[in-house]
């Protein structure tokens, strides 16, 4: 960084800068990646890839009218599953103190329900 020295005088006395590893250049550090969040986005990417492969194998998105009396395709069902998973997790965090994996379990079961019946 150009202003590295100017910053060092004030901040490095507070917390010593860590030794830079290969990915520690300024472009990426501000995004603050951790393996947990990275694996979440990898999961989303895998979901989308699976949807693409599924669409190639069985084109048309399997549209139908489900229990919500809405016309849904596979993509809609994935969206509904992911959005409800978000709300299930938020409700779990906000209302209970139990392990968050239970919420993940409930969301997965709900996602199966959505893909079958919605």
């Amino acid at each position: 960084m150009i202003f590295g020295n100017a910053q060092a005088s004030s901040w490095d006395s507070v917390s010593k800068a860590q030794e830079k590893s290969f990915f520690d250049f300024e472009f990426i550090t501000w995004m603050a990646w951790k393996w947990q969040t990275a694996s979440f986005f990898i999961f989303i990417a895998i979901c989308i890839t699976i949807m693409i492969i599924w669409e190639k194998k069985d084109p048309g998105g399997n549209p139908r009218k489900g229990v919500l009396t809405l016309n849904t395709t596979r993509g809609d069902r994935l969206f509904v599953s992911l959005l409800s998973a978000a709300f299930i997790h938020l409700a779990w965090i906000g209302l209970t103190d139990f392990n968050l994996w239970f919420a993940t379990l409930i969301s997965s079961i709900f996602a199966i329900f959505v893909f079958r019946y919605v």
Partner: peptide
């Protein structure tokens, strides 16, 4: 993506981040 990353961490600037888990979500929701 950055917002998602930040929502699980604490920072005091200088690109130093500490993992906080779901603490902020609990704090906000309550």
């Amino acid at each position: 993506m950055t917002v998602v990353n930040y929502s699980f961490q604490e920072t005091f600037g200088n690109n130093v981040f500490m993992w906080e888990g779901t603490r902020w979500f609990k704090q906000i929701l309550q």
